[in-house]
């Protein structure tokens, strides 16, 4: 392709006829990717539902051992980050290059806070011996026989929050790339598709958390007390 006559630019790649077609394609692509993500997390949610139904009491007690305050704080932080992401996209639409950069940095910052809080929570679990597979695993308030089922809960807790955090880390990487590109002045009112598409991804990760938080922290919490 290197010696081909078509001139290729970021704004219009050679396979597209119009900028609009290119933008539509990118957006549709991201939506489809998010569909695959829904299916991916859906498998996890299915497993969680099955075991929650098998051992409702144990799962309630496990839920109540989680730190709901930190969870709630994190939910707010993530919602804020979604807001700043929307503002970044808006700035893209208006072609305000400085504003794009600042809103992206804010989004990255909130994402960082979320991951920090998450790390604190995980550390807590580690100190309390709530790590599944650990020989010392013990959850207070449960019979010895149910410790195995509690391990199941924490397996799913770590798998789900871990995968969510992994998506956040990937999102942070994407934001970093966007910030660097924005600094080079690549985005304008006529071409801000990457910001737009990254926004979709970021909101999706946010929405996954909106499901995870009540499922893991809140449902039947009162029963565990």
């Amino acid at each position: 392709m290197s010696n081909h006559a078509h001139s290729e630019s970021l704004e219009l790649r050679v396979q597209f006829d119009t900028a609009e077609q290119q933008r539509d394609a990118s957006t549709l692509g991201m939506w489809l990717f998010l569909v695959t993500e829904v299916m991916f997390f859906g498998g996890m949610f299915a497993a969680y539902t099955v075991y929650r139904n098998l051992y409702p009491e144990v799962f309630a007690i496990c839920s109540s051992s989680l730190n709901a305050v930190l969870g709630a704080v994190n939910t707010c932080v993530l919602l804020l980050s979604s807001f700043t992401m929307v503002m970044a996209v808006r700035a893209g639409q208006l072609g305000q290059q400085k504003a794009i950069i600042w809103f992206l940095i804010l989004t990255l910052l909130f994402g960082g806070i979320f991951l920090g809080v998450k790390a604190v929570e995980w550390k807590e679990k580690f100190d309390e011996h709530h790590i599944p597979g650990q020989a010392a695993f013990h959850l207070e308030g449960l019979q010895q026989a149910d410790q195995g089922h509690a391990q199941l809960f924490f397996s799913l807790y770590f798998a789900m929050t871990g995968l969510h955090a992994l998506h956040m880390v990937i999102g942070a990487g994407i934001l970093l790339g966007l910030i660097l590109h924005a600094k080079q002045g690549r985005y304008s009112a006529s071409y801000y598709t990457p910001v737009d598409v990254a926004g979709l991804y970021w909101h999706f990760v946010d929405v996954i958390w909106i499901f995870l938080f009540p499922l893991l922290y809140l449902i039947d919490r009162h029963l565990g007390k």
């Binding site: 993500e37 299916m39 991916f40 498998g43 996890m44 497993a47 391990q151 199941l152 397996s155 798998a159």
Partner: peptide, 24 residues
């Protein structure tokens, strides 16, 4: 697009189960 992610999550579960013996 719809099916393969479920295979992916199944393999993730298989992976953690085999490595950490979590009991899933």
């Amino acid at each position: 697009v719809l099916g393969t992610p479920v295979l992916a999550v199944t393999i993730v579960l298989l992976f953690v189960e085999r490595v950490f013996q979590l009991g899933i």
